[in-house]
Design a protein around this nucleic acid. Sequence first.
DNA 1: GCTCGAATAAACAATT
DNA 2: TAATTGTTTATTCGAG
Length: 304
Amino acid sequence: MGPIIGMTPEKRAETPGAEKVAGLSQIYKMGSLPEAVDAAKPKATLMDSGESADDELTNLNWLHESTNLLTNFSFGSEGLPVVSPLYDIEGDDVPSLGPSCYQNPEKKSATSKPPYSFSLLIYMAIEHSPNKCLPVKEIYSWILDRFPYFATAPTGWKNSVRHNLSLNKCFQKVERSHGKVNGKGSLWCVDPEYKPNLMQALKKQPFPSALTSPESGSLSPHYLSSVLKQNQVQTLKGMCKISILNHKNSDKKLGLKIGFLFIKQLCLLWKNWKIKTLTKKKPKPFILLLTFYIIALVLFMLYT
DNA sequence: GCTCGAATAAACAATT
DNA sequence: TAATTGTTTATTCGAG
Ligand SMILES: [Mg+2]
């Protein structure tokens, strides 16, 4: 998709605009916004993962049919956020989730850089605020709360946040109301015109939520695409290794099943337009991966 | 090697 | 006055 910073509405994703958020146009008519409430600290709730029809094509539950299946086979999930914000921003009917649901500070992710651009971090912060508007200071706080990385990150990230707010057309500055004692600066909102872009960008993040992690459920095509691109060699090796190990353990059926399901999964994904879109620029990795695996499978079957 | 988007740094003005 | 906020320009970096 197009750039987040400076993106034009024409370039935005075709996400059907179901937004019910008060549009900036309305806000501007009002002239000002009510004072932003303190950074959202609603109760943390777990969302139902609610599989869509699309998941049928992307579901990798079969990978968990055997508990020892993945032991020799890494998906390279280092530094992944424990929970993706995607699933609690998506859909306006969904109430905001609690502050601690994004990253587990005890995990390695606390010290690794979050896999989100500043635009997306800001977007998430604003979307989780009660009024969908935050002063810059509370944007800092939200980011700090969810991503402890920034507590020890090199100074400058706040500068980057302000830079992004200012430069990025997705974010609009709105004057505070004159009622109470105002804080410094303005409130920042997401321009609804650009919200689909941000939502799309968030969906395209190749990092799955805990609800859809390899341990617990289906994967998004974006994530799978990313994983396959990043780990195709390891994946291939892992698959072959598992197949052979299971074969040697006299579990030939499982070994073959893994192979066939893997191919089936790839074919389904290939048929899916999403994966075509994702790979039309560089289809080679998928073709090569598929070819390699078919060869490996044939050799494996010959060996048996 | 080129382009583009994002990150980063920094200068500077305005505001509180 | 100092700190914060907001704007702008320049540079670097990585992916495609
Ligand atoms: Mg802006």
